[in-house]
Structure formats: C-alpha cells, structure tokens
Design a protein around this nucleic acid. Structure first.
Lengths: 204, 204
DNA sequence: TCCTGTGAACTTGTTCACAGCT
DNA sequence: AGCTGTGAACAAGTTCACAGGA
C-alpha cells in the first residue's frame, strides 16, 4: 500500500537496508526474507516489512524479497539512480578523509568540487579533484549542484552554508560542530563526532 | 524529581546541551533560561526542561539555569569529570583526522593509544601518540581502558571489536561501515558517514 | 509450511497547559 | 512578570498477532 506519509525514521533506515543488500548481492544471494535482512541491520523483521510496505508490496510470500528488485527500488526511492553531484567545503584532515572515502562513489555520489579558503591548499589535489578557493563557490549554481558536505571549522560553517544555500544547495551534511540556520526547505544533517563519543561513558 | 528511567533520547541530547553551555560560558554569560538554550540547540524549551528534570530541579524560576552549575551537573551525569581514557584503532585518513580532533580533549577524553596493523604506520606518531601494532591491543586491559573508537576498514572491524571487548572495553564509537556484534552490556554507537549522506537526496 | 503485509495494541517521546516559586 | 517543573494530552514509532498468498 503506497503511502503519502512516510515516517522520517523509515527514510533513515533505508540506506542501511541498501548497504546490507549490496553486501548480500556481492555474495550472489538472490532473495532474502525479512528476518535475514533483519540480522544484517540488527532490527526487528516486522519493522523492515512495515518500512518497505510504505512504498509498495514487493516481497514474495514464502521466499522473501528479490535482492536485485529491492536494491533497485530503494535506490529509486532515495533518488540514487542518477549520479548525485556533491561539493565538499573544507579540506582539512576530516575533509580529506571524506574526499577519499570509497563509500560515497559506490552509492552514486560524485564529489565534483572541493573548496577551502587556505592559500596553502588551493590548487592542490585530493585524488583527482583540485581544491578551489571558497570565493569560487558560486560555481555550484551553474552546475546545478544540490548537495554539499561541510567540513570546515565551526567558526565559518554558518557563513559557508548561507552562501551554499544562496547558490542552490538544498541538502547539507554538516560535520562541523555547530548548528546551522537554514531556510526550512533545506535539509541539514549534522554529525558531530565528539557528541557521539560523549554519550558513551554514561552507559559504562 | 530524580528518575530511575531516563529516556535514551534525553541522553543523546545532553552532549548538545553541554556544547552550547560551554559556548555561552566562554562569552561570560552566567545564567540562561530554557528558551535561550533552546535556540542554540534548535529544540523546544519544554523538551529541555523535561530532560533536565529527570536529574533534579536546578533551574531558578524567573532567571533560568546557572550556566556553571548546569555545566558541572551535565558533566557529572555523563561521567565527564574524570578524564576518560580512550583508544583509537585504525590510523587511516579518518583515524588520523579523529586523533587530531580538538573536540575530544575539550570534553575530557584522552586518546591514550592508537593501533594499526600496517607496518608502514607502526612507530609513527599522530600528535604525541605513537601508533602501535594491533597485536599490542591487550595493553588496554592493564590500563583499565573502557572506551574505543574503531576507524578500521569494515573487513577487520568485527575481529577488532571482539578483541577490544575481551580486553574490557564497554563503549565503542564505530566509524567503520558495518554493524558489530557485541555482548549486550557493551554500548556501540555506529556512524557511517555514507549512510548520512545517502538520506539527503530523498528530501531534495 | 514459510513468509509477507497490515490493523490493532502498545511503547516511547514530545508538546501543551498551568500551578507555583522568585 | 518571568520562568521552572510536571501531569495530562497528544504524536510518533514499534511490536504483536494474524489473515492470506506462494
């Protein structure tokens, strides 16, 4: 049953399903019941069936889900079937790590440009991509790029995102340790690695 | 009113409150009502008051929360007042970025050791910390270290965490792109940066 | 028999509304 | 007047229980 209201949490889990599906696909497995997928993503099988049911009914009773079909479907839902052009701002250690991440390419992301405002970095390359001056950020408007990764120091993150949004960016992965104010039509996902570590001692 | 059952989501938010409090403290602000803290963390003020109320009543009616007291209290709750010894496994680009992160130190984390299994890295330094062979992981038992950050390739992440847990680790920040099987008394927080990016095109 | 898809029950988390302290 | 702390109402998310197709 196709829904109009898909829960946020469902969208958050789809990438994990996709990762697991690519993994089993590599091993040549053709179909997979929900309880096996559940093992890979450490979730309740009912949860998975409910999540998928928001987009249609593509499981086969008795055998589970066809791996290839489901992979294709999730890629479609997440709009991963056409390549997603992405820019990276900030070529410090974290930015450099990100730029050379094998994961992004695999899921259809194409880091088309890297920006930094340090003279010592501008002109150098990470992989095949030249680091450009942050002054050139308006490039992204011409190239109709919608996604950006911010790996700058927090002090400049807000001004960076403001310029990005002015130039048409609508989705941001923010790795700097601060919140960003953006118009509500822009989706920001903030990950501060320190915050994630800080939680752990509480449980020990 | 002191609770025995603190919601998981409350714990997730405490680090963010702490970050905001350190920020306003630097600016010399002494007390802060919930609606101002709410701006910094982009949350509803009621949410903040409810979260804090699980641990006691330390707000002042009319003026809000004393910044210093609240900072101290949250640090206590999160067990951040004694230094938290932490090890890092994996000295690739991401691991290196992590090791030189200024954020961790600020919150009382002390990266006491870095491990990697590549001969070309062993013996080198990141900051002041020498990279040791992964064979030396049992060190952590003698040093009673409870926390670990895993930044290895996913292929070796599971064996790494197994060794870590055998040697007394009870909290893990897992930055490799895979799930880890651990005994239930061990808390694992997995962050896969690719997964976070993948969600964004859906909303654009 | 095995497994999906789904309403209903339940659990968890959030927001409202307001009493009461300073 | 301004703000906290909190029960009650509400919303979101998860799990159960089971009908029904392959």
């Amino acid at each position: 049953m196709k829904d109009q209201k898909v829960p946020e949490e469902t969208i958050r889990r789809l990438p994990r399903y996709l990762r697991a599906l690519l993994f089993v696909q590599q091993r040549g497995i053709e179909s997979l019941p929900s309880h096996e997928l559940a093992e890979y993503v450490q979730l309740n099988p009912t949860q998975i069936r409910k999540d998928l049911s928001h987009f249609g009914a593509f499981g086969k009773r008795g055998t589970g889900y066809n791996v290839e079909t489901l992979t294709k479907t999730i890629r479609d839902i997440l709009k991963l079937n056409e390549p997603q052009k992405t820019v990276l701002v900030g070529a410090g250690r974290l930015g450099t790590a990100i730029a050379s991440f094998p994961g992004f390419e695999r899921y259809g992301f194409d880091i088309t440009a890297i920006y930094d405002n340090s003279m010592s970095k501008i002109g150098k390359k990470i992989g095949n991509t030249i680091i450009k001056s942050s002054d050139a950020l308006s490039d992204i408007k011409e190239n109709k790029i919608k996604l950006a990764i911010i790996a700058t120091p927090p002090e400049v993150a807000q001004e960076t995102v403001t310029v990005l949004v002015e130039n048409g960016i609508t989705g941001v992965l923010n790795l700097s340790s601060c919140y960003l104010k953006v118009p509500k039509e822009v989706k920001v996902r903030t990950i501060d690695l320190a915050m994630e570590l800080i939680m752990l001692p509480y449980y020990t």
